[in-house]
Nucleic acid binder design. Sequence first.
DNA 1: TCTCCGATTAGAC
DNA 2: CTAACGGTCTAATCGGAGA
Length: 423
Amino acid sequence: MVTALSPLALVDCNNFYVSCERLFRPDLQRVPVVVLSNNDGCVVSRSNEAKALGIRMGQPWFECKALAEQHGVLALSSNYALYADLSNRVMRILSDFSPRTEVYSIDECFVDLSGMPDLRALSYRIRQTVLKWTGLPVCVGIGSTKTLAKLANHIAKKHPRSRGVFNDNDLSEAQRSRLFGRIDVGEVWGVGRRLSSRLAVHGIRTVQDLRQAHVPSLRAEFGVVMEKTQRELNGLSCIDLQEVQADKQQIIASRSFGSMVEDVDVLKDAVSMFVANACAKLRAQGSHASVIQVFLMTNRFRQDLPQYMPSLVVPLPQPTSDSLVVSRWAAHLVERMFRAGYQYKKAGVMLSGIAPQGRYQTDWLEPPQAVDTRLMDALDGLNQRYGRGTVKVSTQGAYTGWQMNQTCKSPDYTTDWHAMPVV
DNA sequence: TCTCCGATTAGAC
DNA sequence: CTAACGGTCTAATCGGAGA
């Protein structure tokens, strides 16, 4: 008997955001549908019908809007509360299939299938179960490394004959080199557009080319990351399964505005909202931040207008996760950076110097200050129970004029009782 | 020359 | 009516400042 290589599956939802929307809108089943990014800016998810029309991933909506609407494409604003909830359900189901999983993104999960018999049948069972319990279609790719599992998943998605499952370990070396010789190197996990074109200069155009590239030259020209990718493509595992999600080292909250903003009070209002969101995330992982950065940006696509992209960083006197404390600093930074006469299009808050609460270098000269978390605890509790924004910090969203466009957002079907469809 | 640090780059989704 | 182009996150690498 041949010992099976430790098989790793990548389970990836098909057209995830569009599929989520269709669950509650069966009338959209065979209609071309796209989901737009925040502020209704770019296309971030496409149904197969929309892909067939040539609408590209990440394409600005205003660019393809006319053509899309001509073909009856329905464009929806993104509804992250809905997608996050459905994602959690999918991940919970997958964790029933293996004790070792890694939630890699909102719609992807690595699943360790070591020691499990009949992987093909198991993979079909995974697909069937997720489909039956959530209504969401997924594809399963299996390989002996993460990079091969990703590639296998790509093959499963691309070839209808695979019926949504592809196992790289089932290939002979001859079959593998023939297949990989027909796949563009840009399909490899970690090889984006820039690296693709740089690799092409060196004659590396297919996955097979990359597998066989001269190791020292590859290392010298493209660095360690590319060398790891190459090893992974050859079945040598270099990227471990990360079962527990590490705490964030940096937390960013930012948004483009629905329209241009010229008023400093409106900017401060927006920034107080970003602080509230960033600090809530910080508290959710039980950390404190010691550095805060605030930035403002004019519209970089409007080269006809004067550009100004200031940013200020301050170390906080004491690490904290208190929205009120951070909010005061943020407002101060906005005041300092603001220059009248510019049309601002975006702003944001970045928290860094993040460490677990109570584990940071204390200031020897200052007497230790008692940290009172009761107010923020209560705020989080209320916002969790009664919905985000029940209790606010500062003006946080009281001003209008900066909120993002969301012309066609679906109801929060699964997370808000009031949005429950009436049967 | 070495080290540290912030800025930049590239990628993923 | 018109203008209209996302948000977060990580790791590696680069380049300058200071020791």
